[in-house]
Design a protein around this nucleic acid. Sequence first.
DNA 1: GGACAGTACATGCACATGCATTCAATGCAA
DNA 2: TTGCATTGAATGCATGTGCATGTACTGTCC
Lengths: 149, 149
Amino acid sequence: MAEPDPHEASAEAGLIAEWRELLARHAAAVCALDRELGERYGLGMSEFEVLERLVEGCRAEGRAALRASELAPTVHLSQSALSRLIARLEKGGLVTREMCPSDRRGIMIALTPAGRERYDQARPLHREVLGLTLGGRFAPLCGESSASA
Amino acid sequence: MAEPDPHEASAEAGLIAEWRELLARHAAAVCALDRELGERYGLGMSEFEVLERLVEGCRAEGRAALRASELAPTVHLSQSALSRLIARLEKGGLVTREMCPSDRRGIMIALTPAGRERYDQARPLHREVLGLTLGGRFAPLCGESSASA
DNA sequence: GGACAGTACATGCACATGCATTCAATGCAA
DNA sequence: TTGCATTGAATGCATGTGCATGTACTGTCC
């Protein structure tokens, strides 16, 4: 009924192993990032990612601001989720949202000094958490029932 | 101000590259799985994972049912999220939830024939989607703005 | 036996997300 | 210029999630 081909079966097993590894790493990292960044800097993982793209985009292209439509594809969020995330960041004073002069449908998103500072502060912790959850094996916790430590 | 050590800087760059690769693969796979499995079989990614753990757990240990607390750590969900997920599966007739006789705090979760059948039906599509999104590079779509046909 | 800490699961609540829709602005065509 | 399809972003809504809590049960210590 299923495939009796041992080659195909082991290929599938490898795929599933890869998939579960991916899920486990993702869950561990996202959970730890959200917890640590949230606790110490009031940022979620996605908020941090957006700040980082703003820093990079501006540095790379010498511009002071990015269009929301440029930002969206890089953070794996829907357009609506990004819109609200930007609103949160703006409310927190970390970015500004201004009408784009050349196309008044669009908005230009720019880091404020406070946003840049928050990013600079949070960055070491972000790197540290990733180092622990991706590189070294670390506690799963969060979603997965038991917390260590 | 930052670390001027080029070794440390490149290690960090590698870590970030790994992290973004992980995020991209995860987003692509989860999005595609939710969409495809949801559309054709009425299952979310996590629902499928739970069905799969039930199939595996029962096959591996010869038991007909698993405790919720055994299931939780394997699916990267909080205890409350798993509880509601089980409730959804039960409402859909795919699992049963019975009181555990030896410890009446716990519940035993068992696949129904319909649940087993749904899993068997959905499995090939699940594997196919993973093959496309993990192995071969594939469309990102979903969250990331543009959809590629 | 009775009190009490701990465990297993369910539930109230707040919130982030995606989909569908809406609104404004643009660009193209007649 | 007017009309219309398209695009960029905001918003109503439904849903899934985690945290904190509640409830029922277990095991231990007195």
